[in-house]
Simulated assay, not measured.
Amino acid sequence: MDALVIGAGPAGLMAAETLAEAGRHVVITEAMPTPARKFLMAGKSGLNLTKDEPFPDFIRRFSGGAREALGYWDTEEPDFGPNEVRDWAQGLGIELFTGSTGRVFPVGMKASPLLRLWLARLREAGVELRTRWKWIGLENGFHFSTFEGKRTLAPSVTVLALGGASWPRLGSDASWTPMLEASGVDLARFQPANMGLQVHWSAAMQRHFGSAVKGVAIHAGPQIARGEWVITSTGIEGGGVYEIAAQIRNGMEAKVDLFPDLDQTAVEQRFGKPKGKLSIGNWLRRVLGEPVKTAILLEWGQPWPVKASDWAKLARALPLRHDGTMGLDHAISAAGGITGSAMAPDLQLRALPGVFVAGEMLDWEAPTGGYLITGCLATGRRAGLAAALYHDKTG
Rank of each mutant, 00 (worst) to 15 (best):
E77S: 13
G184W: 08
R123Y: 10
L119M: 06
R116M: 04
I136H: 02
R103P: 05
L180G: 04
D79L: 12
R67N: 02
P113M: 00
R86C: 13
A125P: 05
R121G: 09
G91K: 11
R130C: 13
F105Q: 01
L162M: 15
A193R: 00
S112F: 01
P178H: 13
L160E: 08
V159G: 06
F142T: 00
R86G: 08
I94E: 13
E95N: 10
A66Y: 05
V104Y: 03
A125D: 10
R116F: 08
G71H: 02
D52R: 13
F55D: 03
W135G: 01
E95Q: 06
I59E: 09
R151C: 00
S175M: 09
G149S: 09
F62L: 05
L96I: 02
E95P: 02
W133Y: 15
R151G: 00
F105V: 02
T75S: 08
L180V: 05
T158L: 11
E76I: 10
L162N: 11
R130A: 14
K150H: 10
K134C: 05
P82L: 14
K150T: 11
L119T: 01
E84C: 04
L119Q: 01
M195S: 10
T177N: 00
R60N: 03
G81P: 03
D52M: 06
S112R: 03
G71E: 00
I94L: 07
A69Y: 06
L70F: 14
A89S: 07
L197Y: 06
W73A: 06
W118I: 02
S166K: 05
R61T: 09
P178M: 12
G163M: 10
F62S: 10
E139P: 04
F147Y: 03
F144W: 10
T75P: 00
L92M: 14
F58L: 11
E95Y: 07
P54Y: 04
W88L: 07
E84K: 11
P178N: 13
T50C: 06
T177K: 01
L197E: 12
V185L: 05
F97E: 08
E77F: 14
L187Y: 07
V159C: 08
R86H: 01
G149N: 09
R67C: 05
Q191K: 07
D57G: 11
A125E: 14
G196I: 10
W176R: 03
P106Y: 05
